[in-house]
Design a protein around this nucleic acid. Structure first.
Lengths: 112, 112
DNA sequence: CAGAATCCAACGTGATACTG
DNA sequence: CAGTATCACGTTGGATTCTG
């Protein structure tokens, strides 16, 4: 268990959830993977203006937390596919809620 | 609109939601305020091992994002009450979902 | 009581260049 | 293609002390 998650257990279950999914790009990754596995490059483009360096780290953390599965196909050129684990799939409704709330928030507080 | 929220708008609504509620203690604050207004001291004790310095900053951000209302009663000793705004109340179901997911996560990945 | 001031360490995030 | 190496930096969260 990652340290930040372990610390959250000392506070409240909601902090645990935030510790797992609260990082930048993480919930967007989950959102994109809901439609099926994606290769690293596909995921990079789908998520947005994220650098490979950063996306890799977020994926590693999601993997460590059991949310994402990383499948390496030993071939040239390399092929690595990311997918949601069963646990990751349980985040589906949460992603939808966050997506809807964020959209509502933008509707009532427009970007200036 | 806070800068981190504005940046999130360039990515995805889910990132906007995370930008608003993703900070440490924030969703725990919302959870505690669901049962009604709390004074600063009460909130400090209810949230957990948070320092006044940090809790104040998180509350200011939640206030700036329109989630929390801060009511000052001009008296001695000072009395300041925090409550959820209508927007903050719309986070209710999200808090419940996060709480449930976090609890499930702990059940399947016990603290070691 | 409800914070503000000051200071700081750690972390999260990012740009750029390079590689098996 | 899917990263890694290196470097850099702003923000976050925190400890401590002090105050109207």
């Amino acid at each position: 268990m990652r340290e930040s998650v372990r610390r959250a257990t000392q506070v409240c279950p909601v902090e645990v959830a935030i510790a797992v999914v609260g990082g930048a790009w993480k919930m967007t990754v989950v959102k994109q993977l809901r439609d099926g596995p994606l290769r690293f490059g596909e995921l990079t483009r789908a998520v947005g203006p994220v650098t490979p360096r950063v996306l890799t780290r977020q994926l590693r953390e999601l993997e460590a937390d059991g949310v994402v599965h990383r499948e390496v196909y030993p071939q040239v050129p390399p092929r690595v596919e990311y997918s949601l684990t069963p646990l990751g799939q349980t985040l589906g409704s949460l992603v939808e809620s966050l997506d809807a709330w964020g959209a509502d928030y933008l509707a009532q507080a427009p970007v200036r």
